[in-house]
């Protein structure tokens, strides 16, 4: 009696030559890496390439992505519904509104704050602007305005200038800003700080000052009423003006019939008199000399 459960053939535990070689190949580092990294990558690339080869599918995918983006951008949390201004006059605010020209409500993703800030600061009246989107859908624009310091009668009419010479806006009538001094002449905006210093120095004559005239874009004339002018030098004009005022206070110079006080050479002030007075003066001098 032989037991029936004995296996007919004993299995050979040895790997076949092919199995042995394949196993060794699988254990080769480069092959292993190729299998674990390279092959999945290649398959993924292949699938993607095949899927995107169809133009319709590409378009559909693009549309879907765009829809997703829109859905996120249009969420209530990201919507901007109003603009709040901080600082700045009504005229400036209106100018900014006109310049920005944003359609509200808009998604905060669509607002390019840097470009908007650029646009706002390009307005003459705005010195500095700060834009921020606040929670609650508010676009806040904090504006620091330029403060006009002078009125310039330029080639294009009356222009307001701030203390740095930057235009802040046009002026219709001189009357509107009678409180500001007037300057005129080419190149006046470039010398505004100097002009302000001269005007400050001319405060003893304040009621008589009509304005400042830039001559040859290099020096100033202080224009007074009755057609009088104080011609100031290119350098140190304030000192020259103070000297002229000192002469005026001592000898009442500007109350006399003088047309020009020439301070262009500060060490030698010169005056030009009105023609009639000059003739009268001459007669008096001749009488004194007993000539003619």
């Amino acid at each position: 009696m032989r037991p029936l459960n004995r296996p007919a053939v004993r299995r050979d535990p040895a790997p076949s030559r092919l199995a042995y070689r394949l196993h060794r190949l699988a254990l080769t580092p480069s092959v292993r890496r190729g299998f674990t990294v390279g092959l999945p990558l290649a398959v993924a690339t292949l699938i993607l390439t095949l899927a995107l080869a169809d133009a319709d599918r590409r378009q559909a995918l693009g549309a879907r992505v765009a829809a997703w983006k829109l859905a996120i951008a249009q969420r209530e949390e990201f919507m901007v519904r109003q603009i709040a201004f901080r600082g700045g006059s009504d005229a400036t605010t209106a100018a900014i509104r006109e310049r920005l020209n944003v359609d509200l409500p808009a998604s905060s993703f669509d607002l390019d704050l840097a470009a908007m800030r650029e646009a706002v600061t390009s307005i003459d009246a705005v010195r500095e602007a700060e834009l921020s989107i606040l929670s609650g859908g508010t676009l806040q624009i904090a504006v620091e305005e330029r403060i006009p310091a002078l009125v310039w009668r330029g080639p294009e009419g009356l222009v307001l200038l701030d203390a740095e010479g930057h235009p802040t806006g046009a002026l219709q009538r001189r009357r509107d800003r009678a409180d500001l001094p007037l300057v005129a002449g080419d190149g006046a905006p470039e010398a505004v700080p100097e002009a302000l210093a001269i005007i400050a120095a001319a405060h003893p004559l304040a009621d008589r000052v009509r304005g400042l005239l830039r001559v040859g874009a290099r020096r100033w004339d202080l224009v007074l009423d009755r057609g009088q002018r104080v011609m100031l030098p290119e350098t140190r004009p304030v000192a020259a003006l103070e000297e002229a005022i000192a002469i005026h206070e001592a000898q009442d110079l500007l109350s006399r019939d003088v047309l020009r006080v020439d301070m262009r050479t500060p060490s030698r002030p010169t005056i030009r008199m009105a023609e009639a007075s000059a003739r009268t003066m001459r007669q008096i001098r001749l009488g004194e000399l007993g000539g003619d």
């Binding site: 040895a14 790997p15 030559r17 042995y20 196993h23 060794r24 580092p29």
Partner: peptide, 18 residues
């Protein structure tokens, strides 16, 4: 040769290297 292959393959499998 078969016996050597058996031994080498098993050792390689344990070592996970060729």
């Amino acid at each position: 040769e078969r016996a050597i292959r058996t031994a080498v393959q098993a050792a390689q499998k344990i070592a996970q290297t060729r």
